[in-house]
Simulated scan of single mutants.
Amino acid sequence: MTDTHALDALPLFPLELVLFPGGFLPLRIFEVRYLDMVSQCEKTGAPFGVVTLTRGNEVRTAAGDLAGGAKTSQAVFHPVGTLARITQLSRPQPGLIMISCTGAQRFEVGQTELLKHGLWTGRAKLLRDDQSVPIPEDLLPVASALARVLDTLKAQGVTPEQMPIQPPYALHDCAWVANRWCDLLPMALAQKHRLMTLDNPLLRLELVSDLLERNGIAT
């Protein structure tokens, strides 16, 4: 459960990706603003928010380090994002942190603030979790195809730590299967973000099924 008070100033990490609930996100942290953020999250056990960039860069340029991050202020991101909880952390060298995160609850950020050292924070409101909806019979092939992908990756010698999909697996659940396909399928960020924001997990799975057909992936 997330402390509601922490959501009054949720640290935000704008990235050129979409994090889905239950998704696996490895990150290499080297910017001071995010080194501080990750260290604080590790200390308190609090999550940070991943939001999808629509304009701007993930990494600040030299110009962005001046005047409290003028360049960074040009970043624009979607207001709906996903909480990221740190599951593994290592410090292989000074000034570098490697983390693995799991996507948790979705949120919508309202008022945002760019702090002096370039970190965005925002007042966030948690969105309700996806309902647990069993996969209907006509969409079971979508789950079977995902299971085959997992089996293929394991057969190819992909280690558990390198798997793009992390346990626990929920191959019976509409939202989980749809989300994991969204993690894997190549699609425009805007399209992926629209799927993430859908409140109906069955509809999300149906749209994923259509995408699989269009991509020639037999289900």
Rank of each mutant, 00 (worst) to 15 (best):
R28I: 04
R28K: 13
I29P: 00
I29T: 02
I29Y: 01
F30L: 08
E31K: 06
E31H: 04
E31N: 07
V32Q: 15
V32T: 14
R33N: 05
R33G: 06
R33I: 05
Y34Q: 02
Y34N: 02
Y34H: 03
Y34P: 01
Y34A: 06
L35N: 06
L35M: 10
D36V: 04
D36N: 09
D36S: 04
D36C: 01
M37F: 08
M37Y: 10
V38M: 11
V38I: 14
V38G: 12
V38C: 11
S39Y: 04
S39P: 01
S39I: 03
Q40L: 05
Q40E: 15
C41P: 06
C41L: 06
E42A: 13
K43Q: 13
K43L: 11
K43G: 03
K43P: 02
K43A: 14
A46K: 08
A46C: 12
A46Y: 05
P47W: 13
P47I: 09
P47M: 10
F48K: 06
G49Y: 07
G49I: 06
G49A: 14
G49T: 14
V50L: 15
V50M: 15
V51F: 08
T52Q: 07
T52I: 10
T52F: 09
L53N: 07
L53Q: 08
T54R: 14
T54A: 09
R55D: 14
R55F: 12
R55A: 15
G56M: 10
G56A: 11
G56E: 11
N57F: 07
N57R: 06
N57H: 10
N57Y: 03
E58G: 11
E58P: 05
V59R: 11
V59P: 09
V59M: 13
V59T: 12
R60K: 08
R60W: 01
T61M: 03
A62M: 03
A62W: 11
A62N: 10
A62P: 00
A63G: 08
A63Q: 04
A63S: 09
A63D: 03
G64T: 02
G64S: 07
G64D: 02
G64V: 00
G64W: 00
G64P: 02
G64Q: 00
L66R: 05
L66F: 03
L66Y: 04
A67M: 03
G68D: 07
G68W: 00
G68E: 07
G68S: 12
G68Q: 01
G69F: 02
G69Y: 05
G69V: 03
G69S: 06
G69P: 07
A70V: 02
A70W: 06
A70K: 07
K71I: 02
K71V: 08
T72D: 01
T72V: 12
S73P: 03
S73V: 00
Q74V: 00
Q74E: 04
Q74R: 02
Q74T: 05
A75C: 15
A75M: 15
A75L: 13
A75D: 15
V76N: 12
V76T: 13
V76R: 15
V76E: 14
V76L: 15
V76C: 15
V76H: 12
F77H: 10
F77L: 11
F77R: 12
H78R: 15
H78K: 13
H78F: 10
H78L: 14
H78V: 11
H78N: 12
